[in-house]
Design a protein around this nucleic acid. Structure first.
Length: 501
RNA sequence: GCGGGCGUAGCUCAAUGGUAGAGCUCCAGCCUUCCAAGCUGGUCACGAGGGUUCGAUUCCCUUCGCCCGCUCCA
């Protein structure tokens, strides 16, 4: 079977140093990936471009860089953390997930009646209560999953004392306790030092709302942006870096006066979509998908996903819409929750109008790894150069701002002083802050193609004419066309081209 | 997490119960005066652990990883 587009991209990503599997020499680690020399440049360019667009070029947004480990109470307030002793159960009949200790009791073996699929019009079914003594609180079914802790956060412990050692020390004592006391003892030991890796960067912005307000003299409407790693212990599957337990977010929390939230929501939806387009992402592979009411998280008033049509494989063939970014109207839910739990007033007092309000939050939350992957997929192409010779080139059509290498410098041949001249040009480019790369091995055409494959937008070639009149050729990646330009001032020449691209 | 398939060089693949080949890539050199596939040479692999066996890459088990489906997805 022919290699799929995605397989080709994965293969290229590894071969050329964009993305490697984590810990590969030890057999790899599930759904964890490393960015190679070119991948790290690409991702950095994506993040920098986001930061420039959302923070640097604006007066109404400031940045933040919070710690990944935060006070556990942050997660209690946000609702991410349920108590240790709250096992959750899934109903296999109606798919409801509920807390076992809050479920209606039923004596084991007792006759129970419930509706098929949990639907009101579903067929009436009879069963017996399961041995564990409770049934589904929604449909009354006894067909339930095991009791499980569904904590999507990575737990670790803060402090030099290892809770595992504490537990081992307590084992003998616990043997004398009843089950409930044992559970409490264990939860106490683990809970004493338990901290969590953040599952989203958003909460860092909410808990620093007052700090930023007071230190930066910002006032609504204004935003706080943060880019950083987050962690979710989800069941992960396939498609390279699309879904991983460790991932990097680019989030903006934009605080606005209630009543103006709808218009800001629309504004950010449009602004964020335009950002992807401004970096060359193909319009027909981008779309907005508005969430249905039932799909909304409990705190959200509205949510829309920016989706990209990834070349993922599926039973229907190739291509699947996947989320790049979610833009949500989180209302005043988060600030109010943190206000409640911390006891601090997180409302804003507007001096001129003498009004106090808790801002609504519009949150454009993008995935840095997902965007990087989408830009990589979007740039990938195999193009027929000469059908008769069966000449096909692989090329990554990165926007110049995203390209890992901006300019490659070649001597046409490895003699007549061309290498020396070319290295001089390379050094000028590097001095000028243009990421450049030198290569003198093999035929010139081969070197052009190698650069196509890693998405370098321009190649500069030193030839005999350079030695005579100081001009070089600049070869364009996309058109493969060449033009002569003076070697003098080449750094400024490319800086301008980058700026205007 | 469950079920099925798979795991051989950087990539794509082949062969074999007696320790493995190819193409491309990569490296060195030659040739090259503007777009790959030229010449010479070279590096590099049986995911890991255990078992069966005189001997395992090949058979069995475990584990890790990948793929497909389900599941999960604050």
């Amino acid at each position: 079977m022919a290699e799929s587009t995605m397989q080709k991209i994965v293969s290229l990503a590894k071969r050329r140093g964009f993305i490697f599997q984590s810990s590969e020499i030890y057999g790899g680690l599930k759904a964890c990936y490393d960015y190679g020399p070119l991948g790290v440049e690409l991702k950095r360019n994506v993040k920098n471009s986001w930061w420039e667009d959302v923070v640097t070029k604006r007066q109404d947004v400031v940045g933040l860089d919070c710690s990944i480990i935060m006070h556990p109470d942050v997660w209690r307030a946000s609702g991410h953390l349920a108590g240790f002793a709250d096992p959750l159960v899934d109903c296999k009949n109606c798919k409801e997930r509920f807390r076992a200790d809050k479920a209606p009791k039923a004596n084991p073996g007792e006759k129970i009646i419930y509706r098929e699929g949990g639907r009101k019009d579903g067929k009436k079914l009879e069963g017996v209560a399961p041995p564990r003594g409770y049934v589904c609180p929604v449909c009354g079914s006894g067909d339930l999953s095991d009791e499980r802790q569904f904590n999507l956060m990575f737990r670790t412990s803060l402090g030099p004392v290892d809770p595992m050692q504490e537990i081992l020390n307590a084992v003998d004592d616990m043997a004398k306790m009843d089950a409930a006391a044992r559970k409490e003892k264990l939860a106490g030991i683990i809970g004493a030092s338990a901290v969590y890796l953040r599952p989203e960067t958003a909460q860092g912005m909410f808990v620093n709302f007052l700090n930023v307000l007071n230190s930066s003299r910002m006032k609504p409407p204004f935003g706080i942006a943060q880019c950083g790693k987050s962690y979710r212990n989800e069941i992960t599957t396939q498609n390279l870096t699309f879904r991983t337990c460790e991932f990097e977010q680019m989030e903006l929390e934009f605080f606005v006066e209630p009543g103006t939230d709808d218009q800001w929501y629309d504004y950010w939806m449009k602004t964020r979509l335009d950002w992807y387009k401004s970096l060359g992402m193909k319009g027909d592979k981008l779309r907005l998908r508005h969430h249905e009411k039932a799909e909304l998280a409990h705190y959200a008033k509205a949510c829309v996903d920016v989706e990209y049509y990834y070349p993922f494989e599926n039973p229907q063939g190739e291509g699947e819409w996947g989320e790049l970014e979610g833009i949500a109207n989180r209302t005043d839910y988060d600030l109010k929750k943190h206000s409640e739990h911390s006891g601090k007033d997180l409302s804003y007092f507007e001096t001129e109008s003498k009004r106090r309000f808790t801002p609504y939050v519009i949150e454009p939350a993008a995935g840095a790894d997902r965007a990087t992957l989408a830009f990589l997929c979007d740039a990938f192409a195999e193009e027929v150069v000469d059908a008769e010779k069966n000449d096909v080139r692989t090329v990554l059509h990165f926007h110049p701002r995203l390209a890992p290498i901006k300019v490659a410098v070649f001597p046409l041949v490895k003699k007549d002083g061309m290498p020396e001249k070319a290295e001089g040009i390379l050094n000028e480019l590097l001095r000028e802050g243009v990421n450049a790369f030198y290569d003198e091995s093999g035929a010139i055409g081969r070197r052009y193609r190698r650069m196509d494959e890693v998405g370098t937008p321009w190649c500069v070639t030193v030839d005999t004419e350079t030695l005579e009149n100081g001009s070089v050729t600049v070869r364009e990646r996309d058109s493969m066309a060449q033009a002569r330009v003076p070697a003098a001032g080449i750094g400024e020449y490319f800086r301008n081209r980058l700026k205007n691209s």
